[in-house]
Design a protein around this nucleic acid. Structure first.
Ligand SMILES: NC(=O)c1ccc[n+]([C@@H]2O[C@H](COP(=O)([O-])OP(=O)(O)OC[C@H]3O[C@@H](n4cnc5c(N)ncnc54)[C@H](O)[C@@H]3O)[C@@H](O)[C@H]2O)c1
Ligand SMILES: NC(=O)c1ccc[n+]([C@@H]2O[C@H](COP(=O)([O-])OP(=O)(O)OC[C@H]3O[C@@H](n4cnc5c(N)ncnc54)[C@H](O)[C@@H]3O)[C@@H](O)[C@H]2O)c1
Lengths: 235, 235
DNA sequence: TGATTATTGTTAAATTATTAACATTGGTTT
DNA sequence: AAACCAATGTTAATAATTTAACAATAATCA
C-alpha cells in the first residue's frame, strides 16, 4: 500500500513536498476533525453490515448508507492509510479494527456526566446501553436528592467530591449538562482536576487551556438553523 | 451603509462581478450555514448584554464572549447588512432585532417532538422554558402510557394522528428522538405529511427530498471525537 | 485644529474541506 | 490472451470558510 507523503506532516495542507520514509501512522498525524467524525460513523455503519453478514463493502455502498459520496469515503480511508487488498471491496471486520486503532485509545477511557438533570440522565441512560472503549463511570451533581444514588445506570457523586473522584477513577472526559450559570466555574475546576476533554451541552460558550479538547453542541442554534432554512425555502 | 455586491447572488463565492441595485436583503440571499449558527449565538449573547444593561458592544467584545475573532463577527454582520452608526459599537437592541428579522420567520413556526422518550422529554422540557418564534406545540409517541397526556409541558398525541395533527397545528419542524429502527420510516411519513425541517438526534443517517431541510446531530460521534483528540494530545 | 487612535466595513489571501479527474490494478468476458 | 470493466488510491481542482489586510471614519486629545 502506498501512502501520500503529506500524511507525515502534523498539519494538513492540500499539497506538500515529498518525503520518503514510512513512520507508524499512529504517532504522526492528527486527522481533520471532519474525518474523525466520519470515521465514527463509518464504524457504526460497518457494524451494521456485520449484523447483516456482509463481510465486504464497496466505497460507494458505504457512502450510500451515509448519504455521502464514495470519494469522500475513499479519501478518508486514504488518510488513515487503509486500503482494500482484494477487489471485493473493503473487508468490513478489518476496517472496523483499523478505525478502532485510529480513534480509540489503547485502554478504555473514563467519562463522567456533570449535572445529572434531564439531559444528563438521557445521555447517561443512552451511554450505558452501549459497549465501547468509553466507559461512563460516574456522574456529579449538587442536588442532595441525587447524590450517592445510582441514576440512569451510573453512580452519582456529590460535586464536592469531584477532585477526588476524577483522580480515583481516572476520569478524562466530562459531559457537561449543568445549568448555564455554573458551566464556566465547573469547567475551570474540572480542568484543574485533570479533565482533558469536554463535551459541552450548555448554552454557555466555554474556553479551555491548550491541551484540553472542547467540543460544544448548542441545541438552540441547531433548531434555529433548521427554522431559518425552512423559512428560506418558502421564498 | 454599503453592501458588498456578491450578496445579491444566491450562491456565495469569494469574488463576483459587480451589480448596483439594492434589493431587500431578506429575499435575496441564503446565508452560509455557519453564519446562521453564529447569528443565533450572537443574539443570545446580546440578550445577556441587555440583562447587564450594556446597550452597546464592540465587535471584539462580542467576539471575546463567544471565543471567536472580531473579524468573524464583523464579517457575519456585514453579510446580514448590519452596521453600527455610532463608534460606540453596535447597538445591542437594534442588532438583536436585525438578527431576528434575518433568522426568525415573520409569524412563529410550530415544532413537534417525535418520540417523547428520555431525550425527547429533556428537549421538550428545555424548549418549553424558552420563549421564541419557535413553538413546541406537540409530541408524538406510540406508547399507550404516554399518549394523550401532557409530558414535559407538551401534549403527546398518538403517532397514528400525526398526519392530522401536522395539518391541524401547522407543524413545520420535527425533532426526531425515536428509536433508530423507526427513524427512516417516520421521517418519510413526516415529510409526506408536510414537515419541512428535521432535527435528527437518532444515530440513523437520514435523507430527505429537496425542499426539506435536515440537520443531524450524532452524540456518539461527538464523544468519540473528543476521545480521539484527548488521546492524540497525550502523545 | 490637526494629529492620533480605535473601530469599522470590505476586499483579498490563506486555510480547510469537498469533489472531480485519472492512472492503476485486478478481475471478467469474449 | 486481448479487450474491457469496476473499483481503488491519489493528485488536482473547486468550493466553503476563516483570517488578514487595510482604507475610511468617527472620537479623543494634545
Ligand atoms: N434539556 C435539554 O434538552 C437541553 C437542551 C439544550 C441545552 N441544554 C443545557 O443543558 C444543561 C442542562 O439542562 P437540563 O435540562 O438537563 O437541566 P436540569 O436542570 O434538568 O439539570 C441540571 C442538573 O445540574 C445539577 N446542578 C446544578 N448546579 C450544579 C452544580 N453547581 N454542580 C453540579 N451539579 C449541579 C442540577 O441538580 C441538575 O441535576 C443546561 O445548561 C441547559 O441549558 C439542555
Ligand atoms: N438519550 C440520549 O442521550 C441519546 C443520545 C444519542 C442519540 N440518541 C437517540 O435518540 C433516540 C431516542 O433516544 P432515547 O434515549 O430518548 O430513547 P427512548 O427509548 O427513551 O425514547 C424513544 C421514544 O420513542 C417512542 N417510540 C418508539 N417507537 C415509536 C414509533 N414507531 N412512533 C413513535 N414513537 C415511538 C418510545 O415510546 C419512546 O418514548 C434514539 O434514536 C437514540 O439513538 C439518544
Amino acid at each position: 500500500m502506498m501512502m501520500p507523503d503529506y500524511l507525515f506532516q502534523t498539519v494538513f495542507t492540500t499539497r506538500l513536498p515529498k518525503k520518503t520514509n514510512n513512520y507508524n501512522l499512529k504517532n504522526m498525524m492528527k486527522l481533520p476533525g471532519k474525518t474523525v467524525e466520519r470515521l465514527s460513523e463509518y464504524r457504526r455503519t460497518l457494524l451494521e453490515c456485520l449484523n447483516e453478514k456482509r463481510n465486504f463493502i464497496f466505497s460507494h455502498d458505504l457512502a450510500a448508507r451515509l448519504h455521502i459520496t464514495a470519494v469522500q469515503v475513499r479519501r478518508d480511508l486514504m488518510l488513515i492509510g487503509y486500503s482494500s487488498v482484494l477487489r471485493k471491496g473493503y473487508d468490513v471486520r478489518e476496517l472496523i479494527d483499523t478505525i478502532g486503532k485510529i480513534i480509540d485509545s489503547e485502554e478504555s477511557m473514563n467519562v463522567a456526566v456533570i449535572g445529572i438533570g434531564n439531559l444528563g440522565r438521557a445521555v447517561a441512560g443512552y451511554f450505558k446501553g452501549k459497549r465501547s472503549k468509553l466507559n461512563l463511570v460516574a456522574s456529579f451533581d449538587n442536588d442532595p436528592q441525587k447524590v450517592n444514588r445510582v441514576i440512569s445506570g451510573v453512580k452519582c457523586y456529590p460535586y464536592t467530591d469531584i477532585e477526588r473522584m476524577i483522580k480515583e477513577l481516572d476520569i478524562r472526559i466530562a459531559i457537561l449538562t449543568v445549568p448555564p450559570d455554573f458551566a464556566r466555574e465547573i469547567t475551570e475546576e474540572a480542568v484543574r482536576f485533570g479533565i482533558k476533554g469536554i463535551l459541552n451541552f450548555t448554552t454557555i460558550p466555554l474556553n479551555v487551556p491548550s491541551g484540553v479538547y472542547l467540543e460544544e453542541y448548542d441545541m438552540i442554534t441547531s433548531i434555529e438553523k433548521v427554522a431559518y432554512f425552512v423559512k428560506e425555502n418558502k421564498i
